[in-house]
Simulated scan of single mutants.
Amino acid sequence: MKQLENKVAIVTGGASGIGKAIVKLFVQEGAKVVIGDLNEEAGRDLAAKMGKETMFVKVNAALPEDNERLVIDTLAHFGRLDIAVNNAGIGGASALVGEYGIEDWKKVIDINLNGVFYGMHYQIPAMLKHGKGSIVNMASILGQVGFANSSAYVAAKHGVVGLTKSAGWEYGTKGIRVNAVGPGFIETPLLSDMDAEVKKYLESQHALQRLGKPEEVAEIVLWLASDKASFATGGYYPIEGGYLAK
């Protein structure tokens, strides 16, 4: 039997990068998947390729009403919600704290932190209806350490880890597990504009001396989403090629 047979999952930011790899693996493992993303063309194209058990909903993760609609549409189409992966995120502007634009700060926090809260706020009641669920929030290695010129991203990802711990504790006796994954630097569209010198430096900061692959992150998300991780909640799971081992 496949690991997610007959499960219904939401994946935000599911049209590209890590989210896309998660969608593909979830479908492969038997899940019905709802892809939430702002990129309508990429989202619809992926849903079409994945088949009839996959659907796309255009979502801006920074808007509470979009997160609510995503859950409503999921329940209307598939009848239940078992798994949610709050993966949507942006890298944001690069600047020192004293020079970081206020609107740039708000944008990163709105998508990377508030978006996770909004997602869980509507996902959890849907899961409580059948007394069981698994939520996986996408944090980062920068949810554990600092990184120059990325204060908003670092603050948001630290917040995701704290939010995950609180929710995991709150719903521990209610059948809903909540965990966070902390990828290192991964080969995704977020890093597509990186010049060769910066990429080489980032590779050198990992013990494995390379960047990660979206498929490698998807595997740990699959485990956390599945019943194999039945004793895992409120945790932070790094998948970072040794970046944090320094």
Rank of each mutant, 00 (worst) to 15 (best):
Q123T: 15
K129T: 15
M138S: 15
V116F: 11
K106F: 00
N112A: 13
G91C: 09
H130Q: 15
G98T: 06
V108W: 06
G119K: 06
G143I: 02
Y100W: 03
A139K: 06
N137T: 13
K129P: 10
G92M: 14
Q123C: 14
L113H: 09
G115N: 06
Y100S: 06
Y100A: 09
W105V: 04
P125I: 13
G133R: 04
A93H: 02
G119H: 04
E103M: 03
I102L: 14
K132E: 14
D104T: 02
E103A: 10
M138K: 14
G101D: 15
V97L: 02
G92S: 12
Y118L: 03
I111N: 08
H130D: 12
I102Q: 13
L96C: 01
S94N: 08
P125D: 14
H121W: 10
G98W: 03
L96P: 01
G98A: 02
Q144W: 00
K129H: 08
I90W: 03
D104F: 00
M138F: 10
G115V: 06
S140G: 07
K132V: 11
E99Y: 01
E99K: 01
Y122V: 08
I141C: 05
I111E: 11
S134A: 15
Q123M: 14
G98V: 00
D104E: 12
G98I: 02
G133K: 00
L128E: 13
Y118K: 05
E103K: 11
A139E: 04
I141S: 01
H121M: 11
V145S: 01
L128P: 09
K129W: 10
L96A: 08
D110E: 12
A126P: 03
V108P: 08
V97C: 01
Q123F: 12
Y122R: 05
H130I: 04
Q123L: 09
P125Y: 12
G119E: 07
G131H: 09
M120H: 06
I102T: 14
F117N: 09
M127N: 13
D104R: 00
A93D: 13
